[in-house]
Computed example of a mutant assay.
Amino acid sequence: MENVEEFYDQLSSSYSDLIRKCVPRYDELLNNMFLYLNADFKPLRILDLGCGTGNLTQKIIEHFPDTQIDALDLSEDILEECKKRFANKSNINYIQADFKTMHLPAAEYDLVMSSIAIHHVEDPFKLELYKNVYQSLKKGGIFIFADQTRGITDDIYFKNIDCWKEGAFKLGSTEENWKMWMEHQDAHDHHSPIGWHLDNLKNAGFEEVDLLSKYLMWAICWAKKH
């Protein structure tokens, strides 16, 4: 079985197209990540955790065109796609790193964002990641992430997956696409309930945490460092 890096290496050139056929309301999800940022919030440095081919990075540029961006991902090939996409941008720094082993610089970022990436690590590593992000933020810094979550019961969880499948096929996914995502999910994905995320963001040190929105499995969480 391929690992996560190999999986995304193989999808690097087609990822942006496939994700829009896979995730219902995908662009709405990305847009909603910015809804609760105050108009006077002007971050000087932003980290995009698990940047992929740059879909969230693109939204960051649209909202904060002059900020310095660190785009981090595990896959070298997918980072190359991101580099090609933003070849005319000089304010993006690319970092190849693993969520499980990386050490973010202290008090470096005003804003850390992540889109559909954190579920790729097991719960103990998520907690360490949250601690890592917390110490990497300046005072007043904000962590916003969108991710797949698990229902509080198996009935809720599997109903969400059934609805996800129905929505994905309406978007143009094929049986082959769905089988690929489910095989990857069974092997590499680690979904956690919303309550788990919020509790452990607090355990990591964040004083202000909230669920901003949720549709089926996809939730947006907010955490602020005072």
Score class of each variant (00 low, 15 high):
Phe145Asp: 02
Leu212Met: 14
Phe86Thr: 05
Lys159Met: 06
Ile118Leu: 06
Ala168Ile: 02
Asn3His: 12
Gly50Trp: 05
Leu37Met: 11
Val4Met: 05
His197Arg: 08
Thr174Tyr: 13
His188Ser: 06
Ala168Thr: 06
Ser75His: 08
Ile144His: 12
Tyr8Leu: 04
Thr53Met: 05
Phe7Pro: 00
Phe169Ala: 02
Asn38Pro: 15
Lys165Ile: 14
Val112Gly: 07
Asp17Phe: 09
Asp123Arg: 11
Glu2Phe: 04
Ala106Glu: 13
Met33Arg: 12
His190Ile: 01
Asp154Ala: 14
Leu137Thr: 02
Asp155Gln: 06
Asn38Ser: 14
Arg45Trp: 07
Asp17Lys: 14
Glu207Pro: 00
Lys131Asp: 01
Leu201Cys: 08
Gln68Ser: 14
Phe99Cys: 08
Trp218Ile: 04
Ser192Gln: 13
Ala87Ser: 15
Val23Thr: 13
Gly50Pro: 09
Gly167Arg: 00
Ile92Phe: 00
Ala187Thr: 11
Asp154Trp: 05
Arg45Phe: 01
Ala39Gln: 14
Ser12Glu: 07
Ile19Asp: 09
Lys214Asn: 14
Phe64His: 01
Tyr36Thr: 07
Phe7Ser: 10
Leu212Thr: 01
Lys225Tyr: 02
Gln58Leu: 11
Ile118Lys: 01
Glu2Met: 14
Ser12Cys: 07
Leu127Val: 13
Met217Tyr: 03
Ala168Phe: 10
Ile19Ser: 11
Glu175Cys: 02
Ile69Ala: 13
Ala117Val: 06
Asn177Val: 02
